[in-house]
Computed example of a mutant assay.
Amino acid sequence: MPTTAAPLIEVTRIYAEPAAIDLPRGREMAARWPQAEIVPVESHWRIPELHGDEANVRRWVRIKREALVLGVKKSISVRPNGRSADFIAPSTANGCAMACAYCYVPRRKGYSNPITAFTNIEQIMGGVARHVKRQGAKPEPNQCDPHDWVYDIGENSDCSADALLGDNVHDLVDLFAGLPTAKASFATKYVNRDLLDWDPQGRTRVRFSLMPAAMAKLTDIRTTPVPERIAAIDDFVEAGYEVHVNFSPVIVAPGWLDEWRDLFRQLDAAISPATKAQLACEVIMLTHNAALHEVNQGWHPKAEEVLWRPDLQEPKRSENGAINVRYRAATKRRYLDDFLALLAAELPYCRVRYAF
């Protein structure tokens, strides 16, 4: 099984659209890795040696550590969401340096899918700022936030890891710090303490994803260990971030509720009264995918023993038309109810923003 001994990112090859590396941000990112080979590509979507090649399963983690793709974001549209955020901001990256066995991101480009960073950051930021201005003040509270419009800036990547490559995420945090009616939001499984030196002014919500440590060790490959994520929460609150937690994915396995009880108690013991006063969470039950199951069989079959459970799961068509599998509706409701009852008993101050 892959180890986390090597650095999370150690770029040796940069695949770059010419227009992307010609922009100032592209040149800045390439300059961070002066020894890296520059490989021109026509499109960040079509790089055969990275995407769509089953042989890459054998090099899954190495590609994630050593490859960086630079592209230009073509669509600067903002999409409505309504679950975790009011809106999904145009991505400044897709792909990930981490390798969580259940992650949906590899389904888009296929196989390893390292980070693609978009270098037209000024255009992206301009589109977000104009959208925020058009919304005006938020008229009423909702599950996303009681006061502000919330924009997810990390739908297809982990912003904490993206920040290792360049200043895109920092620029977005600075942007939202100056927008009085909106805040940025992103989920993360990586503790990047460089973010503690930024000045978010309460306008960026960091959602630390948590699950029981043993399950995370099996399925959250190349991520920051869960105890370290918990230990960072107070520091991020003190640095001016709003910090929520994602209890996700919730994976049903023998003893799963006992393991979650232990996690809730670890979290409760670790965080300050100030953190507890602003804490909220999301709860997301596991969704898996047959194609990803087949990929995982080639590099991490042990994880599939808990992720691929035909005895407990049923097909589900997602919003984008893909066929996934989830826990059967009737039993999923029972699992979720049991989880929420345990959460309420152990962390009564932790408001549930949404659960599904």
Rank of each mutant, 00 (worst) to 15 (best):
residue 96 C to R: 09
residue 117 A to C: 15
residue 12 T to G: 14
residue 202 G to Q: 09
residue 240 G to A: 02
residue 339 F to K: 02
residue 10 E to I: 00
residue 105 V to C: 12
residue 24 P to N: 00
residue 164 L to C: 03
residue 218 L to Y: 11
residue 99 A to R: 14
residue 194 D to Q: 13
residue 139 P to S: 00
residue 151 Y to K: 07
residue 183 K to E: 12
residue 66 E to L: 00
residue 288 H to G: 08
residue 166 G to I: 03
residue 185 S to H: 03
residue 216 A to M: 09
residue 103 C to I: 04
residue 337 D to W: 11
residue 70 L to Y: 08
residue 271 I to A: 06
residue 18 P to I: 02
residue 195 L to K: 10
residue 311 D to W: 05
residue 155 E to Q: 12
residue 153 I to T: 01
residue 114 P to M: 02
residue 278 Q to I: 09
residue 173 V to Y: 01
residue 248 S to F: 11
residue 142 N to C: 10
residue 37 E to D: 12
residue 148 D to E: 04
residue 184 A to D: 10
residue 268 D to W: 07
residue 207 R to D: 01
residue 153 I to R: 02
residue 114 P to Y: 00
residue 240 G to L: 08
residue 190 Y to N: 10
residue 247 F to S: 04
residue 15 Y to W: 12
residue 34 P to T: 01
residue 350 C to V: 14
residue 41 V to W: 06
residue 159 C to G: 04
residue 224 T to M: 11
residue 103 C to K: 07
residue 231 A to T: 08
residue 3 T to F: 13
residue 160 S to H: 13
residue 283 V to M: 01
residue 3 T to M: 13
residue 41 V to A: 02
residue 155 E to I: 14
residue 161 A to T: 15
residue 90 P to H: 04
residue 284 I to G: 06
residue 219 T to E: 11
residue 28 E to L: 12
residue 205 R to A: 06
residue 251 I to P: 01
residue 199 D to F: 14
residue 90 P to Y: 06
residue 305 E to P: 01
residue 180 P to G: 05
residue 234 D to H: 02
residue 15 Y to C: 13
residue 220 D to L: 00
residue 173 V to L: 10
residue 167 D to K: 04
residue 222 R to T: 03
residue 60 W to S: 02
residue 37 E to T: 13
residue 22 D to E: 15
residue 156 N to Y: 13
residue 223 T to H: 00
residue 32 R to M: 01
residue 238 E to N: 10
residue 278 Q to F: 00
residue 120 N to Q: 01
residue 259 E to C: 09
residue 32 R to H: 08
residue 343 L to P: 03
residue 200 P to A: 03
residue 90 P to G: 10
residue 187 A to I: 14
residue 324 N to Q: 11
residue 213 A to V: 09
